[in-house]
């Protein structure tokens, strides 16, 4: 699929997030942390994805944004970074990549209400897609909206799934609904955060 066509179909930020998460999984990460913070007052949206995969080869950070570059021998980098960089630049935001063995961090910051910024979209579906991988990594997700926080960690999954593995279809649907409710609570009420105490 041509790059331009792929870019035009990534109509949600959550699809870009999924692509970054998939890249981390393909790289062999066993733990991924996602921090998504929205500040309506400052009109900012910041997304940070950190994984514990092997990292990019030394000096390859800049090349990672080139759609024709890959370092598949050590780390699979798909089109995720070039596409998200294109989006960030389009809305006047910033993006950075820091990588070393055992830690790779992608950080982007964009104006939240920019006309050309796609909507966040279905974040629960993107998180679920990663959790349905065989040998899925530990996923720690923090979403903050104006100080209200939703925290999710796959290490705490047992209670939500009643003992079923996430890949089991009915368990997956239950998990998705749990994530949806938790994230939706960030936008509806100051007092109903799913896990405000953490």
């Amino acid at each position: 699929m041509p790059l331009r066509q792929a870019a035009s179909r990534m109509r949600e930020l959550s699809l870009h997030l999924l692509d970054l998460l998939e890249n981390a999984c393909e790289a062999g990460a066993t733990e991924i942390r996602v921090h998504l913070e929205e500040n309506t007052g400052q009109d900012t949206l910041e997304l940070v994805v950190v994984d514990n995969g092997p990292g990019l080869p030394q000096g390859a950070n800049e090349q990672a944004f080139d759609p024709f570059f890959t370092s598949r021998r050590t780390r699979h980098v798909g089109l995720g970074l070039p596409l998200v960089k294109q989006l960030v630049e389009q809305v006047g935001g910033s993006i950075s990549l820091e990588s070393e063995p055992g830690r790779t961090e992608v950080r982007l910051r964009v104006p939240r209400s920019h006309w050309d910024l796609p909507p966040l979209g279905d974040i629960p579906a993107s998180l679920l897609a990663v959790l349905l991988r065989e040998g899925a990594p530990r996923l720690i997700y923090d979403h903050v909206v104006d100080g209200r926080r939703f925290h999710f960690d796959t290490a705490d999954l047992g209670a939500q799934l009643a003992g079923l593995p996430p890949a089991h279809a009915s368990a997956a649907v239950r998990l998705r609904e749990y994530l949806r409710a938790g994230i939706a609570s960030l936008y509806t009420s100051r007092s109903s955060t799913a896990d405000e105490s953490k």
Binding site: E22, G78, L132, R133, E134, P165, A167, H168, A169
Partner: peptide, 9 residues
């Protein structure tokens, strides 16, 4: 339907 759903790269 009881089934396992997986995702891959």
């Amino acid at each position: 339907i009881e089934a396992t759903v997986n995702t891959v790269g």
